[in-house]
């Protein structure tokens, strides 16, 4: 069973709708006992970094997630804020992230954006694939995804960069380290491209 982690931060129903569309049964849960038995995990998220991290802590989910993801190597896909939480921390707040991937989350550098590029980056955009990955099978650089974010990931180890995307400058839009995946964009709202990505995640 695939479990979508419910920590009161975001677009859970949309993810379940998309999974249903591709024929995948999922459950939504905030209970450590249920997350313990998950075969795969999705960490969604919309909103403030600290709010998300504090909710994860208050739900008592950090320990079970560490056990599942770090020790047992259960595949996990972070989406949007859920991807940002995989790193060390964010300029948006003071909370530490989950620390699974050596990256920081930084605000879009306004000085590098022309005036007509607004923050948040709220648009469809392409991906520039940096390494081969099962998550991106059948997708190429023409694949389009829906983005909405004001902060972006910045990997300290280039090996973890899966895709970059250009918005004024190139930023990291997806990361991968072993069983851990994070995408800044919203596959659940990205038509056939997102469907394919989620299907790929299901077959990992």
């Amino acid at each position: 069973m695939i479990t979508i982690i419910d920590y009161n931060a975001g677009n859970i129903k949309s993810i379940q709708n998309m999974l249903k569309r591709i024929g995948v049964k999922s459950c939504i849960s905030s209970k450590p006992s249920e997350i313990e038995t998950a075969e795969k995990l999705i960490l969604p998220g919309v909103g403030h970094f600290d709010y998300g991290m504090m909710n994860l802590k208050q739900s008592g989910l950090v320990d079970v997630l560490n056990k599942k993801v770090v020790d047992e190597k259960t595949p996990l896909l972070g989406i949007c804020l859920g991807a940002q939480l995989l790193g060390n921390g964010s300029e948006e707040g003071n909370e530490k992230g989950l620390g699974w991937i050596d990256m920081d989350v930084v605000k879009f550098d306004k000085s590098k954006l022309s005036e007509n590029l607004k923050i948040p980056h709220m648009s469809w955009n392409e991906i520039n694939i940096k390494k081969e990955s099962k998550l991106l099978e059948g997708l190429d650089n023409d694949a389009r995804f829906y983005f909405v974010h004001s902060y972006h990931m910045k990997c300290n180890d280039e090996m973890n960069v899966l895709t970059n995307t250009s918005y004024g400058y190139e930023f990291t839009s997806a990361v991968e380290k072993e069983n851990i995946f994070g995408v800044q964009f919203h596959p659940e709202k990205s038509h056939k491209f997102g469907m394919r990505l989620l299907e790929n995640f299901m077959s990992i």
Binding site: K13, N17, M18, K189, S190, H191, M195
Partner: peptide, 8 residues
């Protein structure tokens, strides 16, 4: 409608 909307 939302259950059929695979776009924002």
């Amino acid at each position: 409608i939302a259950s059929e909307a695979f776009m924002p």
